[in-house]
Design a protein around this nucleic acid. Structure first.
Lengths: 147, 147
DNA sequence: CTTGACCTTCCCATCATGGGAAGCACGACA
DNA sequence: TGTCGTGCTTCCCATGATGGGAAGGTCAAG
């Protein structure tokens, strides 16, 4: 299987497959005499594993750990779970930061009349010496997410 | 005011102030004969404006637009509001993506016993040919955020 | 044998930020 | 006035994950 077919089969671009190989995240496949990479089903399987981990937002270094654990049949499931939970915590942290930004900005936008007049609380706030504290939600963190 | 003091006064590192100047986001300040940058209060004010916009997650190009609107006293508040609302939409989009990841991963972690045994649904799922659909929440998008 | 699609490596760009080196400027203190 | 430490200057490099594109070799179909 050429790199193009492996890319189609795994959902990772050929460009990224070469990159993952260069940083040692996936094994180097065999080469034909002329230098073409040839992928086995097992190697495509690894590529798919990597893609699924990437789709869940894992950074490459943690994907590296996950691949290692996956291939080590004597691993403890707790090791995997800890990596997953640490990543969940990181995602939640990022979500909270974004929610704080969105909340503040939604609040500012709501108080801006948004017409032809130049008067604008959004700019006023950005220009203020000290930023206003993040907008307090009625039910902090749960409402107004537009979902 | 030297760049170090301007950095302390605005909360933007000297490194970033020079970078913002190099991309034309903030004006080039006067220089002393020996080449030191000298910042006026007005320039520090712009730097603070930029920092507040950055704190709200605006990308540099949108900050550029906001600075322009801020300095144009004949702007329509609607122009500002549209930029803000577009950014809120972008934040919400990112939040939804992260929530989908976190939700799926929380679900997988919950079904992983997390002990010494190697058996692990997290790895099973990552190794599956096709990834499971994102975990369906009981109240989609609103619960389990740990907030 | 030509043509077009595919592969190879290598370099560059993103976005916002930081690190560090080499060299000059400034201020305080002896 | 000389010296020392701190701060400033520019320039280059790195991050993380991805894409773009050039220059050149390979393969398969016509």
């Amino acid at each position: 299987m050429n790199i193009g077919e492996a890319a189609a089969a795994s959902g990772i671009s050929a460009k990224m497959i070469r990159y993952y190989e260069s940083i040692g995240l996936v094994p180097s496949p065999m080469r034909t005499e002329s230098g073409y990479r040839v992928y086995s089903d097992a190697e495509v399987h690894i590529l798919r594993f990597v893609r699924h981990a990437r789709d869940l937002g894992f950074p490459v270094e943690q994907i590296r750990d996950l691949v290692t654990l996956w291939r080590d049949r004597s691993r403890a499931s707790n090791d995997v779970k800890q990596i997953a939970l640490a990543h969940v915590a990181m995602l939640e942290d990022k979500i909270r930061q974004l929610q704080a930004m969105a909340g503040t900005l939604r609040h500012l936008a709501a108080t801006c009349h948004g017409d032809e007049r130049p008067d604008c609380p959004i700019l006023d706030e950005l220009a203020a010496d000290r930023p206003e504290a993040p907008h307090r939600r009625r039910r902090p963190g749960l409402d107004g997410l537009g979902m």
